[in-house]
Design a protein around this nucleic acid. Structure first.
Lengths: 156, 156
DNA sequence: GGCGGTTTAGTTGTGCGCAATCTAAACCGT
DNA sequence: ACGGTTTAGATTGCGCACAACTAAACCGCC
């Protein structure tokens, strides 16, 4: 069922451009993080996991996956690497043995201090004004929500 | 509580949120493409390569890399798979044997017809108005440019 | 209690992305 | 013509993402 505000032909190119812009911008920004995070021995997805843990102290793998929108196929090996690096502990929840609780080690908690300056460093490196960032964030969230709820495009 | 009480705490969180929003939105939109492209036997990066070829007919690997901002480490195996799928040909440029020219096969050219409806399908699936898409595209380009040119402390 | 279905992680396999390294071809100044 | 440099592409290794599958624990129900 097409909407009343269906895009006209001119918009088709636009969609293409937006998708690529998103794809390119995401990789470009991650590349800005890379050298900064390298000093902490983290990749960007690992940094995201640490952000959640610094805020919550501990979480199940499931909750982590919901927050970051990643599945166990991605998280399991990633968490294994964080554990091998001595930053997190993993243990089955005794209340529910299906669940694995991820928590910070002392080293993982200590890393937080070194990470506090990162958002500022990134903001300065890119130099995009906060007003635009706010609008951008909200628009991106809207797109993510719309894409996540996207219909699977029926027949043919 | 874990937040830094700095002069401008709002911006720091914002940066973090924008980066994640970008990362999440990019993956979410790619996921919308996935089932659509699957019918053509293409992944999203492969689709991007085909878009360039449908527009230009042929390109060198280098030019392709500049357009998509991907290096040979990514493109070489990707093009090999497209070649194995019978969609493209690869040949050394006789004028400069260092360069490899990628061109469309008949099958690759024929796939264009099936691909014309894709941008519309994506636009409808997400349902974000064109006015926002335009602003979004321009902001993303600005960020990509800023990130690509980002000053890096590891400079010597 | 035992059975069937669900939930939670982990594993396997494929395809990016990117750094580092390698090879070969082209260019360049002498 | 020559040796050094630059350039284009391929290869290797690692870490995501994601689909498909497996195994174990939980749950409801009889």
């Amino acid at each position: 069922m097409t909407r009343a505000d269906r895009p006209d032909p001119g918009d088709l190119d636009l969609t293409k451009q937006v998708c690529f812009a998103l794809y390119a911008a995401s990789r470009a920004l991650t590349a800005v993080y890379r050298p900064v995070l390298e000093r902490l021995g983290l990749t960007y997805p690992q940094y995201l996991v640490m952000l959640v843990l610094w805020e919550r102290g501990q979480t199940s793998v499931k909750a982590l996956g919901e927050s970051l929108q990643l599945d166990s196929g991605t998280l399991s090996p990633l968490l294994k690497r964080l554990e091998a690096a001595g930053l997190v502990d993993r243990a089955r929840d005794p209340r529910d043995e299906r669940s694995v609780v991820v928590s910070l080690t002392a080293a993982g908690d200590g890393l937080r201090d070194q990470a506090t300056g990162i958002p500022r460093a990134i903001a300065e490196a890119t130099g995009v004004p906060a007003s635009e960032l706010t609008y951008l964030r909200d628009t991106l969230r809207k797109i993510t929500e719309a894409a996540t709820a996207a219909p699977d495009k029926e027949t043919t």
